[in-house]
Design a protein around this nucleic acid. Structure first.
Lengths: 336, 336
DNA sequence: GACGGTGCTTTCATCGATACAACGTCTCTA
DNA sequence: TAGAGACGTTGTATCGATGAAAGCACCGTC
């Protein structure tokens, strides 16, 4: 284990000088710098990030806490964030909670947050009261649907608006029995409820009643549940001529089920997803979807976090707010 | 900032006793333990992971270094690893290199590896000579195709065998002009070359020549390139009756292109992918694919890493080896 | 020759948790 | 009653880098 003091001895200087060279601080004579660099090279020295971090209180890393890593939405999100962070010279680490309360609590625990200079958190289980008693040192930006206390930065997509647009499109193109896969019967503040709210609003706007039999709840938001939902409806003899799925993965499952039932999309049944994943353009038929402003979200989140990190400790917290990013309906082949 | 010494003062003991309580070490009287726990609770104390890590040399985290996070394969892999690591009580962090040489080098640098107790690395740009001059303190397990010096643990899938099986299936079901999308004309040791090798072997086994015009190179392994490859072939007037894609994403693009060309799968053209992603079962048609043993790989990698971590520093390195996990062809609707 | 300034380098305390060795107290045995 | 051993606790050095402040040359100026 070669330490800074070893480099210093080899170069015939003090550790402070080595530190100055490493951190590019001024006030080191050119030849001294050369000697130090040579010693570093010779000994193969590398800074001990842990020691540095203990001393400075900074880690040089930012964290991203997500429920899952394999759903297309989170996969794209983490990739986007990572690429963006990289381009502004930051190290980004992704971790997964599995969507459990216990691990979400741990992820936002004081001790855990301190591992990073800043953290981006997407919670799905915790609610405002869980967050209320948190004392933060670490800059945090929240992402996602769960409401957070107003003193925190929070970026969310326009779940209600996006769903309303999607549902309205289905209703205005002569579909009369629009299923929502991944909807909720009760109205809380999670993703499913918000998207269902938009679905209800679209019906209300057009003076149409919502048939609760067309609101299908799911256990997960993955492919198989979308498939199962459509199959179950069909077996139960429920008539429908459009399906709005609250995620693209559900929509993929729904498309597959409709194909198995020999129902043509979009002629017999229209389908719209949510997330506008890159793969939507390659499905058969190409999937219409709500684009929640993915790029804008990633950029905004990093921007807010960067600002928090800069102003950390100054007590300057004027900018906290929940920002809602506009969504946009992208129509492809699965709709008329 | 509440420190251990604050807890100690409040509880009227020394920091060592607090440390013993926190780390569940024996030799603390029951009532002392109670007082310490009460003090911890009262002050809201949380261990400073950085300081602990500096002292012990352990971080409690293991790292996963991947080229991308949004390709279905890596997304599933990271999710699997994370879930498995969690179930054996370890904290897992994922980072992305973007597939650049520079960032891959940084990721396996001595200083960077020390951030973790152990690291799982999937490289795509570096070769054996880059790795040759590395001195590791940190336990590392390599994943993926690039060959690594024999002193390291390395888990890879059976790229050649899987591709051979896939190609053989296509050839033995009366396809005579099998395209490989994502193939390579020259033979190196990267993923594309290995999978092309299997493709060539299958031809050789049956005494058939390989038409280099059917070996299509790609820039990335994502959807759009699969689409483009098939479209280009068609526009060039190349005749083919089967497509083997070296990743599932490419295959999705290929399926989409074939649909646009009004070619029926599998009647006119058969398609096989590679990776056996969960979404394959929901594509139209359901995609036949090579299952590379994803679960086995994740389990094996963590197991090897765990062993490395345990034996770290003991100089006990007998177990290094390249392990190849068996692959298996999963036939669905895109093949006859 | 004394003085002040500048440019470079060193000294030393510090960050917070851990582990070794030592210590005092108590109990048990010879 | 001395000696050994177990038990619980404490003092202190340590991990490796950092930063404030002090020290030391060296130069030009009056």
């Amino acid at each position: 284990m070669v330490r800074m003091v070893d480099v210093a001895r080899t170069a015939g200087v003090s550790t402070m000088t080595v530190s100055n060279v490493i951190n590019g601080r001024p006030g080191v004579a050119a030849d001294t710098r050369m000697r130090v660099l040579a010693a570093i090279d010779e000994l193969g020295y590398q800074v001990n990030a842990t020691a540095r971090s203990l001393r400075t209180g900074r880690t040089g890393a930012i964290g991203v806490v997500l429920p899952e890593l394999d759903s297309p939405y989170y996969a794209h999100l983490s990739n986007r964030l990572s690429a963006a962070a990289q381009s502004c010279g930051r190290h980004l680490l992704v971790e997964r909670t599995g969507g459990t309360r216990e691990r979400e609590l741990e992820a936002i625990s004081f001790g855990h947050l301190r591992r990073y200079d800043g953290v981006i958190v997407n919670l799905v289980r915790l609610d405002s009261t869980d967050l209320a008693r948190l004392r933060f040192e670490s800059p945090v930006v929240f992402l996602g649907e769960s409401p957070v206390p107003s003193r925190f930065d929070h970026v969310m997509m326009d779940n209600v608006g996006g769903s309303r647009d999607a549902t309205r499109h289905l209703l205005s193109t002569c579909s009369r029995h629009v299923v929502i896969v991944g909807g909720r019967h009760d109205d809380t503040e999670d993703m499913a409820s918000l998207r269902t709210r938009g679905y209800r609003q679209a019906h209300g706007d057009l003076g149409l009643p919502v048939d609760e039999g067309l609101v299908v709840e799911v256990r997960t938001y993955a492919w198989d549940e979308g498939y199962r939902a459509v199959m179950d409806l069909h077996e139960a003899g429920v008539a429908f001529d459009a399906v709005f799925c609250v995620t693209d993965a559900l929509a993929m499952g729904a498309l597959r089920a409709l194909a198995d039932l020999d129902l043509h999309v979009p002629r017999d049944v229209q389908v719209i997803g949510f997330d506008n994943g890159e793969e939507d353009d390659f499905l058969i038929p190409r999937l219409s979807s709500v684009e929640p402003g993915n790029d804008a979200i990633a950029e905004l989140v990093l921007d807010l976090l960067e600002r928090r990190i800069r102003t950390a400790g100054t007590g300057d917290l004027r900018s906290q707010a929940t920002t809602t990013v506009n969504s946009r309906l992208v129509l492809r082949e699965s709709t008329r």
